[in-house]
Design a protein around this nucleic acid. Sequence first.
DNA 1: TGCGTAGGTAAACAAGCGTTCATACAGTGG
DNA 2: CCACTGTATGAACGCTTGTTTACCTACGCA
Lengths: 205, 205
Amino acid sequence: MSQTWRMSATPPARLLAAAAVDLFYRQGATATTVREITQACGLTAGALYNHFSSKEELLYTVVRDMHLALEREVGRAQSAASGPVAELVAIVRVYVDQHARHRKSSRVANQEYTLLTPERRAEIVGIRRRLRDRLTGVLVAGREAGDFDLGGGDQGAATVVATAVLDMCVHVSAWFHEGGALSTAELQDRYVLLALRMAGAARAG
Amino acid sequence: MSQTWRMSATPPARLLAAAAVDLFYRQGATATTVREITQACGLTAGALYNHFSSKEELLYTVVRDMHLALEREVGRAQSAASGPVAELVAIVRVYVDQHARHRKSSRVANQEYTLLTPERRAEIVGIRRRLRDRLTGVLVAGREAGDFDLGGGDQGAATVVATAVLDMCVHVSAWFHEGGALSTAELQDRYVLLALRMAGAARAG
DNA sequence: TGCGTAGGTAAACAAGCGTTCATACAGTGG
DNA sequence: CCACTGTATGAACGCTTGTTTACCTACGCA
């Protein structure tokens, strides 16, 4: 029922991808063998190649789907918000939510995308850059509207704040786990407060 | 002349470790072969085993040395500071400095330590937890002294802020590179401001 | 002079890797 | 009933992996 996988993916492909995420998360993609992935689905090694042309394409699928899902949710949330402050809040909420709820695939996506083919890696890097630029734009707009104080009037100041905010949110996938001291909703609230403060928002404590 | 390697390490071992850092940084530790590491030093594969008992021990050396160096520098800086606000500033300065100046070994240390033997990984995790707890302690002390507002009076609030601050600092090693738009010193200043704001420091903009 | 040691080599090792291939089988539409 | 499609098999492939081994060489020191 996860929105992480595209509709077009065939059921066995989804199972394989899910098993791969779990193993990639625990051991890293390079250290995980095709035999381990297929065995986790009760299959033999060759079966993987009915659904993916290579192990690298399987990693690509996992990584790309997560990035596209994140981009989609961010776009949706940002459209529904009005004004830079609300947009910043919306973006942080989505980031925390995605990285807490889909913690394994998020971590794999963020940690292993560097292993992809140059072309595929470039595609992922493009998505990541678009996502960061989106937040940078929000921060700049907010500064011009008098909502934010970014500690400097240049483009660089906005980029630094955007990078720091996103790094902090992305890393949630590295340590969060449900059933811990904090619920996802509480984490969202706390991180929204931190982000508002980082942006120098007037109404932030 | 890097303080990253212990004095006790023999010269060829240092060369091998330096080559390993570079390759681990670019490809990941698992994807890097012993032959690549030794070849980068003009040696053949077998030579590595005169200096390290295994490839994993080489990774361990690199990862541990970086963590110990960080812990040493943080301890030094914190001792030289007086009061929670100054200590927070000092810790952030050290973190940014280390992760910007030793960007490759820092990234390897943070990204690949999970591949170590359970016992060795536990040792590294211990260092990381001590480092985080140190910052948490500073935040709690500052709150009690009325210097910080952490958005909550419980221990959890301090831990969340500490985690977020360190995540943001650690990730500097993922994107920073000298000769970019920002110098290390400027980055330190900007991140100090962000950290102070996150902690709700009175004097932060 | 000769010996011990540090540090190197080339070659081999077993194991495991990602991937391919010929084959088989189960369901589905004409 | 047949052919087709989708999917899985198990054996094989060629190659690479981390590591070990036996041997070589050069240097510091009694």
